[in-house]
C-alpha cells in the first residue's frame, strides 16, 4: 500500500482534479486518472520531506466551514473600513508566538490569517516560532493575538496533533 501510494492525499487530489477537468466518469477517464494518481507521486517520491498526518478529519471539515463563514461575514466589515475614511484606520504589525510545529500546519495557519479579513501574514521567523502579521486596524494588540490563537491555531493543533 505504501509502495503504491507514497503520498495518499496528493493521489486523491490528482484523481479528483483530473475527473473534474474532464467532467466525466467514463471508464477511460477513470483509468487515466488512476494512472496519473499512481504515476506522478512515484516520480516525486524523493521530494517529500515533511509528511503530515490528519488526526481528526471531521474537525478539519468543521474548520474549513468555519473559515469560509468567517471570510464571508468579516468581508462586509472590511467593506465598511475600505469605503470609510482611511485616516481613521490604525494599521500595525503583530508578532504571534506559534505553538504549532511543522511546515504544512504553519502554512495553513498563515493562509487562514491572510484570507480572514483584517490581517495578512507577512513572514515566519527562521526558527518557525513567530509569525509576523500586518493588521489593517489594530485596536488591542494582546486581544488580537489571543483571538487568532484561540480561533484558528487551537483547532489546527488538534487536527494535526502537533
Amino acid at each position: 500500500m505504501h509502495i503504491l501510494f507514497p503520498m495518499p492525499w496528493q493521489s486523491i487530489v490528482l484523481f479528483t482534479v483530473w475527473l473534474l477537468l474532464n467532467e466525466s466518469i467514463a471508464p477511460g477517464h477513470l483509468v487515466l486518472a488512476a494512472f496519473l494518481a499512481i504515476g506522478i507521486p512515484q516520480l516525486l517520491r524523493g521530494t517529500q520531506d515533511h509528511p503530515f498526518r490528519i488526526q481528526k478529519p471531521m474537525l478539519a471539515v468543521m474548520y474549513a466551514l468555519k473559515v469560509l463563514g468567517d471570510i464571508v461575514s468579516a468581508n462586509f466589515e472590511v467593506a465598511v473600513q475600505v469605503l470609510g475614511p482611511s485616516k481613521r484606520l490604525q494599521p500595525g504589525f503583530l508578532a504571534i508566538p506559534l505553538d504549532i510545529t511543522g511546515d504544512f500546519p504553519i502554512t495553513l495557519l498563515a493562509s487562514t490569517i491572510s484570507l480572514t479579513p483584517g490581517t495578512v501574514s507577512a513572514e515566519v521567523s527562521s526558527d518557525q516560532k513567530w509569525l509576523y502579521v500586518h493588521a489593517l486596524h489594530l485596536v488591542d494588540e494582546t486581544a488580537s493575538i489571543r483571538e487568532i490563537k484561540k480561533r484558528y491555531e487551537q483547532p489546527l493543533k488538534e487536527i494535526f496533533g502537533c
Partner: peptide, 13 residues
C-alpha cells in the same frame, strides 16, 4: 501593507 489587504480578501471572495 494596507493596500495588500483588499485584493487578497475582497477580490478573492
Amino acid at each position: 501593507y494596507m493596500r495588500l489587504h483588499t485584493p487578497t480578501k475582497a477580490t478573492t471572495l
